[in-house]
């Protein structure tokens, strides 16, 4: 632990795994941080994306996949951010290509920040996806979008309660009117630079039988790869027979994720206490 600490004493180093990101088709030249954007379809995700990137964006395909991919860029606080729009999905647990692309990017690409766009008017169905993302990554910001629409419908969302329950910052926005975008940029920047360290509460309780199976595999994973932050998620994916994860365990590629998480956590854990809203 002490070794890791001295290696990564830099407060503002990016956390992403450059090698994996390049494999996933992200050109990192000239960028300091990588932001991924996840969310359900029809949540105004592309509006948030547009509001963050302006017109500096381009679309293409994910490498080897017939899934559209949008990329853009923005600067904040003197840092250059690359933002990758993940396909809009209802879940991350199924076998569809969209979901595979999204979950592999968050797990293997290790984006510095993942923005989860949720629709304030249908919070319940959107939180389902948010909870899944938070199983994979700690470094997330929830963008509570469409608050204007929610207001019209007489729905009030208390973002402080939500932030406390989830353990990650929640930023209310109405992206269509540009409301809350500055705040979102600031929060993304704080999480990206490590000023703010989200600590998601992984509170989802499974059936005793599944819980037992997950712990068995997760324990085995943790004792082999000390510091694997999302061992439970990896264990769950192994139980679901996800071939990408099976391969990553076989080849030891899974270790590339750990080193980063370990260094990040070794260094930033103490600062987190008071910064979570």
């Amino acid at each position: 632990m002490t070794a890791a600490r001295s290696e990564t004493s830099c407060e503002t180093c990016p956390i992403h795994h450059a090698g994996n990101l390049v494999k996933l088709g992200v050109n990192l030249t000239g960028f300091d941080y990588v932001v991924a954007m996840a969310g359900n379809p029809n949540t105004g995700k592309s509006t948030v994306f547009n509001a963050l990137t302006g017109l500096r964006q381009h679309t293409g395909n994910w490498p080897g996949k017939t899934v559209t991919r949008a990329e853009g860029a923005f600067s904040y606080g003197g840092k250059r951010y690359k933002i990758v729009d993940l396909p809009g999905t209802y879940s991350l647990l199924s076998t569809s290509t969209d979901e595979e692309v999204a979950r592999d990017f968050i797990l293997f690409g290790q984006p510095d920040v993942t923005v989860i766009v949720v629709d304030a008017t249908r919070l319940e169905r959107n939180l389902n996806l948010a909870l899944q993302v938070l199983e994979i990554t700690d470094r997330a910001v929830v963008c509570l979008n469409l608050i204007d629409e929610a207001q019209r419908l007489g729905i009030a969302v208390d973002e402080r309660t939500l932030a406390r329950d989830l353990g990650v910052p929640v930023v209310p926005t109405a992206a269509r009117r540009g409301i809350g975008i500055q705040n979102l940029l600031k929060t993304v920047h704080e999480v990206g630079t490590g000023v703010l360290v989200p600590k998601p509460k992984r509170i989802v309780k499974h059936s005793p039988q599944l819980e037992g199976a997950i712990s068995q595999v997760a324990d085995a994973l943790e004792s082999r790869f000390a510091g694997l932050a999302n061992a439970r998620w990896v264990a769950l994916r192994l139980l679901e027979g996800d071939d990408r994860i099976i391969q990553a365990v076989t080849t030891g590629e899974i270790a590339s994720i750990i080193r980063l998480s370990e260094s990040a956590f070794g260094e930033r854990m103490p600062a987190g206490e008071e910064t979570v809203p």
Partner: peptide
């Protein structure tokens, strides 16, 4: 879990 969290946050 999602609906529990939503219930707590939404009025």
């Amino acid at each position: 879990e999602a609906s529990r969290l939503a219930d707590r946050a939404v009025t």
